[in-house]
Amino acid sequence: MKLCFPVTSDQGINSTLYGHFASSPLFLIYDSVTRQTSAIANCDEKNPYAGCNPFLALRGRHLDGIIVSGIGDDALRAMNLCGYKVFEAGTELVSENIPLFEENQLCEAVVLNVRGEGKCSDEDGSSSGCDHDHDHDHDHSDECDNDCDSCTQDCVGAPPS
């Protein structure tokens, strides 16, 4: 079984989930068979300086689940269309979410279809109840320059199962 977690930095299973799936600096992939983790940059490996691109970063990966602490409706729809199931995290630590997933205790994320839901502010700038920090100041140029080479062979290929 392979699980994907949006994270700020690669600290293996001790990593903390990042609050916004689409703008996460990295994705941590956990393989339950080998109990190993690997991190891939959230970018298009062919154009890493273009910024975050979870759709191309995860394309062709065979994942049993994506576990998030926050995802917007559009990103959720896109991941579902790509064949991925997305689950709501039960805690902020990767290590604590793995057994929760294995025991079927995580809820599958659903599209809310509510304007402003899944976003942190409305168009007028008013808050939608978001309670986390948006100042993540990550520079994908270094991460992608160093990390995208490792995901090149898996970024293109067969669609997810």
Score class of each variant (00 low, 15 high):
residue 54 P to L: 02
residue 25 P to I: 04
residue 86 V to Y: 06
residue 23 S to W: 08
residue 55 F to L: 13
residue 42 N to M: 07
residue 18 Y to C: 13
residue 30 Y to G: 06
residue 18 Y to M: 08
residue 94 V to S: 06
residue 101 F to P: 07
residue 22 A to L: 04
residue 56 L to H: 13
residue 100 L to C: 08
residue 73 D to L: 08
residue 64 D to V: 00
residue 40 I to H: 10
residue 31 D to R: 02
residue 69 S to F: 02
residue 57 A to D: 04
residue 93 L to Y: 10
residue 76 L to W: 06
residue 28 L to M: 04
residue 24 S to I: 03
residue 18 Y to P: 03
residue 93 L to D: 04
residue 14 N to E: 12
residue 95 S to Q: 10
residue 33 V to N: 15
residue 52 C to V: 12
residue 92 E to C: 12
residue 38 S to M: 13
residue 20 H to G: 08
residue 46 K to T: 12
residue 96 E to S: 13
residue 68 V to E: 10
residue 14 N to K: 10
residue 90 G to M: 07
residue 43 C to A: 15
residue 86 V to W: 09
residue 30 Y to A: 07
residue 26 L to A: 02
residue 26 L to D: 05
residue 102 E to T: 01
residue 36 Q to M: 09
residue 26 L to G: 00
residue 71 I to G: 08
residue 101 F to R: 04
residue 14 N to M: 02
residue 70 G to L: 03
residue 39 A to N: 03
residue 65 G to F: 01
residue 59 R to F: 12
residue 37 T to W: 05
residue 105 Q to M: 14
residue 23 S to G: 07
residue 96 E to N: 12
residue 86 V to F: 10
residue 105 Q to G: 09
residue 28 L to N: 06
residue 43 C to I: 12
residue 48 P to F: 09
residue 52 C to E: 13
residue 32 S to M: 01
residue 15 S to K: 06
residue 88 E to K: 13
residue 36 Q to S: 10
residue 64 D to S: 11
residue 40 I to V: 14
residue 72 G to I: 01
residue 108 E to W: 02
residue 93 L to N: 10
residue 109 A to R: 14
residue 49 Y to P: 00
residue 38 S to E: 14
residue 56 L to Y: 08
residue 98 I to Q: 11
residue 26 L to H: 04
residue 60 G to E: 00
residue 20 H to P: 00
residue 22 A to R: 11
residue 104 N to T: 00
residue 63 L to A: 07
residue 53 N to M: 03
residue 28 L to K: 01
residue 88 E to T: 01
residue 36 Q to N: 12
